[in-house]
Amino acid sequence: MLTKEKVHQLVDHMPDTFTVDDIVGEIILLQKLELAMEQIANGEGEDWENVKKEMDSW
Results as ranks from 00 to 15, higher is better:
Gly25Leu: 08
Ser57Gln: 12
Gln9Ile: 05
Lys6Val: 02
Asp47Ile: 08
Asp47Lys: 09
Asp12Cys: 02
Thr19Val: 00
Glu34Asn: 11
Met37Gln: 15
Lys4Cys: 06
Thr3Phe: 06
Trp48Pro: 12
Glu5Trp: 00
Val51Asn: 03
Asp22Tyr: 04
Thr19Asp: 03
Lys4Pro: 01
Leu2Glu: 02
Ile23Ser: 00
Glu46Gln: 13
Val51Lys: 10
Phe18Arg: 01
Lys32Cys: 11
Glu26Ser: 05
Gln31Gly: 05
Gln39Trp: 12
Leu35Trp: 12
Asp22Lys: 01
Leu33Met: 13
His13Met: 10
Leu30Val: 03
Asp47Met: 07
Phe18Lys: 00
Asp56Glu: 14
Leu2Val: 02
Val24Gln: 09
Pro15Gln: 03
Thr17His: 09
Gln39Leu: 14
Leu30Glu: 02
Leu33Tyr: 15
Lys53Asn: 08
Glu46Trp: 07
Glu26Trp: 03
Gln31Val: 09
Gly43Cys: 11
Asp21Gln: 11
Lys52Glu: 12
Glu54Ser: 10
Asp56Gly: 08
Glu54Gly: 04
Met1Thr: 14
Leu29Ser: 11
His8Phe: 09
Gln9His: 10
Ile28Gln: 03
Met1Arg: 09
Lys6Arg: 11
Val20Cys: 05
Lys6His: 07
Val51Arg: 09
Glu38Phe: 11
Leu10Ala: 02
Ala36Thr: 08
Val24Cys: 06
Leu2Lys: 01
Leu33Arg: 13
Leu29Glu: 14
Thr3Ile: 04
Asn50Ser: 15
Asn42Gly: 07
Val20His: 15
Asn50Glu: 15
Glu26Gln: 04
Lys4Gly: 05
Met55Thr: 12
Leu35Ala: 15
His13Asp: 05
Ala36Ile: 10
Met37His: 15
Gly25Gln: 00
His13Ile: 02
Val20Asp: 14
Ile28Gly: 03
Ile40Leu: 13
Glu54Leu: 05
Lys53Arg: 06
Ile40Trp: 10
Glu34Tyr: 08
Met1Tyr: 11
Glu54Gln: 13
Lys6Asn: 08
Gln31Leu: 03
Met55Val: 14
Ile28Ala: 12
Gly25Pro: 00
Ile28Ser: 08
Ala36Val: 05
Asp12Ala: 04
Val7Ile: 10
Lys4Arg: 11
Glu49Asp: 10
Glu54Met: 11
Gln39Pro: 04
Glu26Cys: 02
Trp58Thr: 12
Lys32Thr: 14
Asp12Gln: 09
Met14Ile: 03
Thr17Gly: 06
Val24Gly: 02
Asp16Pro: 05
Met55Ile: 15
Leu10Val: 02
Lys32Met: 07
Met55Phe: 15
Trp58Leu: 12
Glu5Cys: 00
Asp16Lys: 13
Glu44Ala: 07
Asp16Gln: 15
Val24Lys: 06
Glu44His: 04
Val11Ala: 03
Asn50Trp: 13
Val24Glu: 14
Lys53Met: 07
Asp47Val: 04
Gln9Asn: 08
Gly43Phe: 14
Ile23His: 02
Gln9Gly: 07
Lys6Gln: 12
Leu33His: 13
Glu44Asp: 11
Lys4Met: 04
Glu38Tyr: 10
Leu30Tyr: 00
Thr17Pro: 01
Val24Ala: 06
Gly45His: 12
